[in-house]
Amino acid sequence: MSGTAAGVEARLPIGSDLDLVWVRQHVRQAAAALGFGLVEQTKLVTAASELARNTLVYGGGGEVETVRVSDGRTQGLRLTFTDHGPGIADLEQALSDGYTSGDGLGMGLGGARRLVHEFAIDSTPGAGTTVTVTSWVARPPRQREES
């Protein structure tokens, strides 16, 4: 993952399908505030929805941390989903389309990866899974304000 963290935005629990709604709304607001275009917002919120649902359904619940990041040229939003569930034994397989161990169209991980700019997954069977995604504001940053 590139870029430097510019501050933790929020940490939200993922324990019910009501929480999924909160996560989506929070990510949309944070992305809009950073200046993400509508399409990029929608992609990031959808990815967040997929990953939060994975955390809930396969990880038995967990949390997401949202962080604003900067690489000097543009700003981005980094989301880290953490659970302490059973973990994923075969990451390669889990990331391929059509794979699912629960119900869903099997687009979860692989689909979410295509919707973001950076994607990293770390999973230990028996200990849990951490998925970190980052998307950058595609539009060049606005003219810096004179301080």
């Binding site: 917002q41 929608t42 992609k43 997929e50 689909g111």
Partner: peptide, 13 residues
């Protein structure tokens, strides 16, 4: 909506 359609295609749906 357009943004939803683009995202769904990217997702493979």
């Amino acid at each position: 909506r357009p943004a939803v359609a683009i995202t769904m295609v990217e997702l493979g749906l």
